[in-house]
């Protein structure tokens, strides 16, 4: 039984240069308590996927397909019904903490707000719980007074406040969009362990968006690799890492500074995937990755490759996937 299920979700944005397809038939399932990592280059549609589930797409967006969450199609819900879900059943940690924080409200007020709104708690009780939540995310009293304003915190501390807000109402699904990019490695490890602990402990499902393959490896059971609004590869995380079948997935691995750490101390040049993600206004026919792919062949160009199953639980949208194991 799945908690969240996307079926052929297509999102088109109306822009002055014409319609831009930012998501193209994206499908996946997420069961209660499960974890799904989403990786891909900048602009490939990771945040759009998250915003679509939250019902927070820009006004210029048009959606096709379905987003089923707890047996309701979110695309058919009105704003009031979405408000009742947001922050309560589905919570999100945003890529940039300042987009989620109100600069003129104290952090104590902001962490307590969801509890007051969704559970009708009184001010005193909500603020007492807020202190516990702040403590839990590593902002203890008295150093981190609830009377602090967001600008009085460092980047990483702000993100911890946002995580406390997201955990406040014990949601069924936590969407974390690059939750730790603003954090140093020790805090990153702590925050990810914290997210893993609370999600596993309370059967909270986790959708973890990141550009760090090592973070996906360490924190998710299943993963999607996205490219230009489409799913390039998917499967159980260990399976996908053992055999990165899509040439794009291997390109991402080669460009990871972490992956090269031991081989390239003074080399100073990182591998890049040549070229750029195609503009959502003029995506090529055929495979969207063809223009940058080292394995491109004539049959890649006429029409986009469908997804095919390599082994149960590991699928790739490529006509010429890598066959062997991932080189290490």
């Amino acid at each position: 039984m799945s908690l969240l299920s996307l079926q052929d979700l297509t999102v088109t944005l109306d822009t002055p240069e014409g319609p831009a397809t930012v998501l193209d038939r994206v499908s996946f399932d997420l069961a209660p308590g499960e974890s799904l990592g989403i990786v891909g280059e900048s602009g490939c549609g990771k945040s759009m996927t998250a915003l679509a589930v939250m019902g927070l797409l820009p006004a210029a967006a048009r959606c096709r397909g379905r987003i089923d969450f707890e047996d309701q199609d979110l695309l058919t819900l009105d704003e009031r019904a979405l408000c009742a879900l947001r922050g309560r059943r589905i919570a999100m940690v945003f890529q940039e903490p300042m987009t989620a924080l109100n600069p003129v409200k104290t952090i104590g007020f902001q962490v307590a707000e969801g509890l007051r709104w969704h559970f009708g708690l009184g001010r005193g009780e909500a603020e007492a719980r807020a202190l516990k939540l702040l403590d839990r995310v590593g902002l203890p009293q008295p150093r981190f007074s609830p009377d602090l304003y967001p600008h009085q915190l460092s980047g990483g501390q702000r993100q911890r406040v946002v995580i406390a807000m997201a955990l406040a109402c014990d949601p069924a699904l936590l969407i974390a969009d690059e939750p730790t990019t603003a954090l140093d490695v020790t805090s990153q490890a702590e925050i990810l362990a914290l997210i893993a602990e609370v999600t596993a402990g309370s059967k909270m499902a986790l959708m973890l968006i990141t550009h760090d393959l090592a973070v996906v490896w360490q924190n998710t059971a299943a993963m999607l690799v996205m490219y230009a609004g489409t799913v390039a590869e998917r499967g159980a995380t260990a399976e996908v890492f053992a055999r990165m079948a899509h040439p794009y997935t291997r390109g991402l691995l080669a460009a990871s500074p972490g992956a090269l750490e031991d081989i390239l101390p003074a080399g100073r040049r990182l591998a890049t995937i040549p070229g750029q993600v195609p503009d959502p206004h003029d995506r090529p026919q055929g495979c969207v990755f063809a223009g940058r792919c080292p394995r491109v062949a004539d049959d890649c160009l006429p029409c986009p490759p469908g997804e095919r199953l390599l082994v149960p639980g590991h699928a790739v949208a490529c006509l010429h996937p890598h066959e062997g194991e991932t080189p290490s």
């Binding site: 799945s2 996946f28 399932d29 997420l30 069961a31 499960e34 974890s35 799904l36 140093d184 490695v185 020790t186 990153q188 490890a189 990810l192 362990a193 893993a196 596993a200 760090d212 393959l213 090592a214 973070v215 490896w217 360490q218 924190n219 998710t220 059971a221 299943a222 159980a236 995380t237 260990a238 399976e239 890492f241 972490g258 992956a259 750490e261 639980g313 290490s328």
Partner: peptide
């Protein structure tokens, strides 16, 4: 030393090792 040890690496032990069905 602590900072260097905390870098996430592919291949290191995982928080969520169980496999999923999706």
């Amino acid at each position: 030393q602590k900072l260097l040890a905390a870098v996430p690496r592919i291949g290191h032990p995982r928080h969520r090792p169980e496999t999923s069905t999706s």
